[in-house]
Design a protein around this nucleic acid. Sequence first.
DNA 1: TCCCAGGGAGGAT
DNA 2: ATCCTCCATGGG
Length: 316
Amino acid sequence: MAGLSTPTLHLTFEISGAEVNGPLNLTGTLLSAQTCEPEWVKDGASFTDVEVLNGTPVKYTLSQTGDSDRFSLNVRATQADTVTPIELALSLKEHLSYVLGLKDDLVLFYRRFVEEDEVLSLTFTRLRGLRLMRGTDLFQALTCSLLSQNNSVRLWNRSARLMMKYYGRVVRFSDGSQEFLFPRARALARLNPRELRSKTSMGYRANPIVNVSRMVVDGDLDLIDLAGRQYEDALDLLLELPGVGPKVADCFLLYGAGQLEAAPVDVWIHRIVSKLYFRGEKVSRLRTARFLRERFREWAGYAQLYLFDYARRGQL
DNA sequence: TCCCAGGGAGGAT
DNA sequence: ATCCTCCATGGG
């Protein structure tokens, strides 16, 4: 913690393992393709992200030393030099705790299913410390979820970065660096979908993204209200949005709204659940999602995350 | 050239 | 309810 009583523009501090509820694998978590935001920028063993905290853009770089069980998290942060300084350390610590799911009781998760579910427990050793990320920006989470449909992680991340470059606000930080924020609904709502498409190579996904942006701007879509509703209720409303089907809706609810009973079913989850829980019998995606929710309840999102990572990395 | 990627919409059966 | 096909785009 910085030793100054006045707000600072630069900051370095640690988050010790004791402040985290169980193990943490930072690299595994940040590389697990969760859809609430573009992947953080990787540089060797450290990762950099930019977010707006209390109205102030903050850029932070994280690295983990030690192993998944005994570690410390090193944080370096800079905030924008053009806005009022905020009490950086406290708000950033709270932010990281939320975004990286550091309060989730992973040991309880493992203990609960290690004997109750032999299939899921297969993933526990190799993925130990993998945590479920949450976005702090609902519009960004919904947009990234829309980008991810029938797309590769690499491609939708590229499109997201291009969106930031062309339509996001530029922020200059006190260390002299410059970054683009994720675009606001206002900036996307006025675009011609064809322009958005040609500049970001996001294909047909430009149409629903512009349409949803316009709904947000016009007040026809209240994402905060949506995120606070009960799961089934929110799901029904989400499915009415253009370009939003069961998978995108569940991604928004899980990674954006932090509703841990949501379990997005993509091709990987569909495959591995069919294979491991239904003896390879073809099961519909809807039934797969319901199966995960009913079996894992408030841990369905985590079960999905572990099975997804396990399947995607070739252990299927 | 074909197939695939953290799918969804519209239609036919 | 389940099964087509098409939808852009780039990588293998």
